[in-house]
Design a protein around this nucleic acid. Structure first.
Lengths: 219, 219
DNA sequence: AAAATATTTTAGTTTCGCCTAAATTTTAAT
DNA sequence: ATTAAAATTTAGGCGAAACTAAAATATTTT
């Protein structure tokens, strides 16, 4: 399957926003892509038909596995080209983004594999962002436990420290999952529990024990 | 001024055809671009408004100086990328054309200057075609005098060996100019004169003296 | 010189990706 | 719990770049 530049840019933007907010909204996307909300709605419908994302009208959007795969491939291309521009063509690291925005849409997979080899399989681009491999795997960025998260610092859930079904069950019940955006509103010294706020939900309380086992990434 | 990929492909195709035929026609372009004549007419009108070419309805099209400049810049990019793909990424020489077709539309001029330097300012692409420099200058391809041209071998006029006004006047009268496509239909041993055929014109006779002073490139 | 044929243009549609204005739905505030 | 405000979608349009079918113009043939 081949996608247009516009489609790829939407997928990439959604992926980026999804890093900090599980459910990406129309307005966020419009701002990110310098376009109008109505245009975003149009495109989301098309991308949904192409199975790249799940679109719930009025409630936002999340990437499907295929969508994620595509996003990571575009990011891979972008970052490899940035590396090339800086390392081989001596560009200044802050001048390469716009050029890579164009190069990332060149479609040949073999080109990218060969470029990767030519560059010596770099692990990160000039800005320090990790370069996904051809399977979409990427060294994860620094995540901390929810217990360590400062108050009023928005973050998103990246994983859990314990795979027990009791923990997962508890999280499901509280509507917390990978990608959920949250923020600590208050910390209780008495028992170490925290009051957290999720989008469109009342405050909920999590025990210290639970907070220790949720990993988040700050935004 | 920035142009779309479609526009650039038209300009490039016109340039290519113009090499072998001063006046490029709608049908030729449609065949070259794998599209329909009606679509070509549409685009020619647009490109004409943008001053990239002179368009005479029903009579075909020629590039303006701006059009030629753009064409040579695209060709420069195409050939530099081909060189890169073969020399640096170890692609086989016959596998690079399609990828270069995409890369040539990336717009950054600085990218191309740096790529040129990185590659050591190559003079020709992997197929032996000369690479225009940033001013559009290119080492000319082998041209022979019309006298040396074999019978029935289509060729186009690339220049004249004598700049005298009497010669140019004679050529003008016979409707021959740079870019004119012609072919020798018959050679007269008696006086060395040749019968040549131009598009949509009856046979005309040129003296040996004249034929020696017209340079052509075979197709 | 007229008729036949080939070429080119015009007219009317389509899809993509965007727009504005208006209607709808959700969220926040009283 | 209504109401006000904000977010989102729908409706209708536009320009680019393609298409088909029909009309217009050139060229070739007789």
């Amino acid at each position: 399957m081949n996608f247009s530049t516009a489609e790829e840019n939407y997928i990439k933007a959604i992926w980026r926003l999804q890093q900090s907010d599980a459910n990406v909204t129309t307005n966020e996307l419009a701002a990110e892509l310098q376009t109008k909300p109505a245009s975003v709605t149009d495109m989301l419908k098309r991308l949904s038909e192409k199975k790249l994302l799940h679109y719930a009208p009025y409630y936002g959007v999340t990437l499907t596995p295929e969508g994620k795969k595509l996003a990571l491939n575009i990011i891979r291309k972008h970052r490899l080209w940035e590396f090339f521009l800086v390392e081989k063509l001596q560009f200044n690291w802050d001048a390469v983004h716009d050029i890579a925005e164009e190069l990332e849409h060149v479609s040949s997979p073999e080109l990218i594999e060969r470029l990767d080899a030519f560059l010596g399989f770099p692990k990160a681009d000039p800005h320090g962002d990790p370069i996904p491999d051809s399977k979409g795997r990427m060294t994860s960025t620094n995540n901390i436990s929810l217990q360590q998260l400062p108050e009023s610092q928005p973050a998103i859930v990246t994983g859990v420290g314990d795979q027990s079904s009791s923990l997962l069950e508890l999280l499901r019940q509280k509507n917390i999952g990978i990608g959920t955006k949250l923020e600590i509103k208050q910390r209780h010294n008495f028992d170490g529990s925290v009051e957290i706020k999720l989008r469109n939900q009342p405050l909920i309380n999590l025990s210290e024990q639970l907070a220790k086992n949720i990993f988040v990434k700050t935004l």
